[in-house]
Design a protein around this nucleic acid. Structure first.
Lengths: 340, 340
DNA sequence: TATATTTGTTTAAACGATTAAGCAAAAATA
DNA sequence: TATTTTTGCTTAATCGTTTAAACAAATATA
């Protein structure tokens, strides 16, 4: 007993027409009569025909697959972006291949090779923290397939980018803290070399200036933004002679670490030290006290990234230029900064 | 200026040999001389040759892609399983396509079709809560490609399954709570129709019997196990005339909801009511109080699932039978059940 | 009626790799 | 030396689909 695949040839044999006619009928070619189309589709269903995607992809030179690269799927932000990319692309007949870089440059390079090898029609990516060498991303561009970046991007690649206004978000946060009476606002930022984190740092500095608050270098720390490092950096801040009365942290996981430290040391949040995070991960609304955070519109980012891909993929040759779509983020105020 | 793909034909032309020889050289065929192999590989590198995966997949009848279906990537359990599946399969030359069902039966069916259409060489899946109709999974089997299930599986499909001992885990939990002096232990379980949740419920019931504790039906609730539903079910339990002194909840997110309710109502955890969750999601160690939970060995599950696929895919025809690998889970005791 | 156009189909060549079969030259064996 | 075996390659078919080109029949136009 052999498992023979049903091909268009089998359908053609049943109806005594050519495989070419079958192919055209299945693709609704205008030169095929309605009668034939109907017959072909009927027989296809009867025989339980499944098109061979590899064959058509090979012939068409298109795989209808889109690669997605994210640092990690297990944050709500990325998993939500992915969900929305998928929704838009599925409607347009594309499927996605998700890969994780685990914030590792090496893994990211491997992922890119894997995706190119799999002949994806384009790549939508958010870069790993470690990534500074852009040669692998340039390789994608040199293949002539669309590359779209979101959240973690780079101007130098000259491609579409979808993200939020990080600079402005820092202003929002500082404004909010100042309004609540905070005077010594610290910032635990991400790596400076990563554009989005750099923008948040610049925003923080400029916002302090705007409010005539002195910029104190010991209040500005660089962090990997893991929960663990959030703990460490918070401990550093507590060790200062002049402690801050508010800490703005560029990532929710690190904020969680900071919150744990404060709770352990019985420091009142927000009255002794107010806390604001970034990313609006679900747990920010779950911990005690709940954490104020910035909502990044992951749904919108996913949709726009997918649409940007679709726009580019239709054109040959693919021409890409720097085209930034910047969304305004939203500050969700919760207990950790809600001083009365 | 056209972007011409480099093919084996181009390499063949440079060296004045046949494309067949090039193909064999690249695949290290024993009938090709070392000299030719070296020359081919050198020219391939020089021309920046990238093999056309679609062509070789079509010819070989193998895509070297493996489909993975999970309810949602944004839990630590699934994202960790995926990471480990990927690590094992990459080493064996396979790449994975990740899809999410979002716990929807309809989406899961679509995912299966998508994966089959993409000609994956096998599928590793954890079923959606909603899924009772197994016809789409039978379709995978009927294609003659390996199907491996993990965590959420079904005996009736007669395929490899990797999971933890849910029945025994319930015993561990109840034993622990009894030891801490709890006498009225409630259980907020998952959907009974889902095998793993059913096993946890059976384990709970049998463990109560073992300890001669009466089974009170109002203490056994069925839940979707979302944070929201965890809140609701906890409120139900609190509304009882005779409140429980411990609640074992079959999922961490729901446990979090329950914890919020108890904190809001100033009910002491664990002294008034002890709490045990399931899944050991990272936040269980982050909230106040920290939540006792069951660690499911996601790394091991991922590895075993991938290895099971590799074992099956090498054999033709693929023969699958029910073969369960059951790991013993581990109870991580934290503050929420640590009565003194 | 003669010619042009449209319709509906077939033929055959791709897409880029793999591989069974064939064949000459080199090496091993008798 | 004659024969067999091995080595190293080529030829040609193949995977299943798409599509440019060809063509006959039907229809429209002059």
């Amino acid at each position: 007993m052999k498992k023979k695949r049903i091909t268009i040839k089998d359908i053609a044999n049943v109806l005594n027409i050519s495989p070419a006619a079958v192919s055209k009928a299945l693709n609704d070619d205008s030169r095929i009569s309605a009668k034939t189309k109907e017959a072909v589709k009927r027989v296809a269903k009867e025989l339980n025909y499944q098109p061979n995607h590899l064959a058509s992809a090979l012939r068409r030179g298109k795989s209808n697959l889109v690669g997605v690269i994210v640092p990690k799927t297990n944050s709500n932000f990325f998993s939500s972006v992915i969900e929305n990319i998928e929704a838009v692309l599925n409607k347009a007949g594309y499927n996605i291949i998700i890969t994780q870089s685990n914030e590792s440059f090496e893994k990211e390079c491997k992922n890119i090779d894997t995706l190119l090898y799999t002949q994806v029609d384009g790549i939508i990516a958010s870069m790993a923290n470690e990534t500074v060498d852009l040669s692998f991303y340039k390789k994608i561009k040199s293949k002539g397939i669309p590359l779209i970046l979101f959240d973690r991007g780079e101007n130098d690649l000259n491609v579409d980018y979808i993200g939020i206004n990080d600079y402005e978000s820092s202003h929002m946060i500082v404004n909010h803290l100042v309004e609540k009476g905070c005077k010594r606002i610290a910032h635990i930022g991400g790596f400076k070399r990563t554009r989005i984190f750099n923008n948040r740092i610049r925003g923080y500095i400029d916002a302090l200036k705007k409010h005539n608050l002195p910029l104190d270098n010991e209040l500005l720390l660089e962090s990997s933004l893991t929960t663990e490092d959030g703990r460490n950096k918070m401990l550093e801040l507590l060790a200062l002679k002049k402690r801050p009365d508010a800490v703005y942290i560029a990532g929710d996981y690190a904020t969680l670490g900071a919150l744990q430290v404060l709770n352990e040391q019985n420091i009142n949040i927000p009255d002794d030290i107010a806390l604001v995070g970034f990313g609006n991960e679900p747990f920010t609304a779950m911990v005690t006290p709940t954490i104020s955070s910035v909502k990044q519109h992951s749904e919108e980012i996913g949709k726009l990234a997918a649409e940007s891909f679709l726009k580019h993929v239709e054109k040959t040759p693919v021409i890409q230029t720097l085209n930034k779509i910047i969304l305004e983020a939203e500050l969700i105020i919760r207990d950790s900064s809600q001083k009365k």
